[in-house]
Simulated assay, not measured.
Amino acid sequence: MSEEAEGVRLQKVLANAGVASRRVSEQLIVEGRVRVNGQVVTELGSRIDPENDLVDVDGTAVQLDAGKRYVMLNKPTGVISSMKDDRGRTDLRAFTTDWEERLFNVGRLDYDTSGLLVLTNDGELAQVLAHPSFGVTKVYIAKVEGTVTPQTIATLTRGIELEDGPIAADKARLLDTSGGSSLVELTLHSGRNRIVRRMMAAVGHPVVELVRRQFGPLHLGTLPVGRARELTKVERGALLTLSRRGSDAEASADPSGEAPPSREKPENS
């Protein structure tokens, strides 16, 4: 029987995935730092199916499918968060020409909002991370009208009432006030439609400019506006780990494995 028919040795899979050399991978296995489908594996002769089994090392997911692409885009304003717009507006296809794979966006950003958007051909990951019930943490910087006070910051974290229910920022921080405007950093896990703009308007400070700086474990860093790049190995591992936790949570909540229904619209900050 061929190796493919009976599975591939775990240390070879780890080496092929770029985790470490074959010898170091063997050491990781022996030390009990490798799990397959959530179970620690310490036997060096263990074989797995790379197409179906899930592997993590020290709790961080390992990407085994080399055909999956994970891309970070710093979306400019004036771009629709779609791969095709029937109204002729600039869409995300303009930023995916470097990749042969058909990529699509995880969640969305408003037409007038810039910042971090994930593009991928991993449908399962996209479905989990974009679902409102999962609540990926996002960090935004908003330039708003007027001088924001510490009392307003406290109100944002304490919670306010909107037309579709109460909402509170996980964190809120005043970064600057000058020239009749303020910079506010908001951390949220809500996926509700245009939530940052609606929150700031509700406390009397309409948004002038809005940038998403962080999505889950991913940080925009110094990526220029309008540029896209593939995630690093560390970033891919962090994103896959987050996605798998979401999948596990869904499976625990619903034995059918289906995402729970939600009345929330897709995220459109």
Rank of each mutant, 00 (worst) to 15 (best):
R192S: 02
D91T: 06
R197T: 07
R212I: 04
A202Y: 01
V225G: 09
R227G: 01
M199A: 14
S182V: 10
A154F: 01
N121V: 09
T157Q: 13
A169G: 10
G135W: 10
R229F: 12
V148E: 01
H219S: 13
R158W: 00
D91R: 02
A169M: 14
T147D: 13
G216Q: 06
F95G: 08
G135L: 06
D176H: 13
A154N: 08
R227Q: 15
M199E: 08
H219T: 13
V128C: 02
W99G: 04
V148K: 02
T155D: 11
L183W: 13
I160L: 15
T222M: 14
F104Q: 10
D112C: 00
S190R: 07
G204S: 01
F104K: 11
L117M: 06
L116V: 13
T177E: 10
L218C: 09
L220T: 12
P132D: 04
F215M: 12
L186Y: 04
K143N: 11
R212W: 05
T97G: 12
G146K: 02
H219E: 15
H131V: 03
H205A: 01
L210I: 00
G226E: 09
T232V: 06
S190T: 14
R227K: 15
L223A: 11
L223R: 11
F134T: 03
L119M: 14
D110V: 05
V207T: 12
M199Q: 12
T152F: 00
G115T: 10
G115C: 10
G180D: 00
L92G: 04
T90M: 10
K138M: 03
V144F: 04
P132N: 03
T187D: 03
K171E: 15
L183D: 01
F134Q: 13
T147K: 11
T155A: 14
F134W: 15
V148I: 11
L103Q: 10
T149A: 06
T222C: 00
V136A: 08
G221Y: 10
F134S: 07
F104T: 05
L220G: 11
A126K: 09
S190F: 03
S181I: 06
E145H: 12
A172P: 06
E100G: 15
H189M: 04
I195A: 10
R102E: 12
V211N: 14
T155W: 00
V139P: 01
E185V: 09
T113E: 02
H219K: 14
R227T: 14
L162D: 04
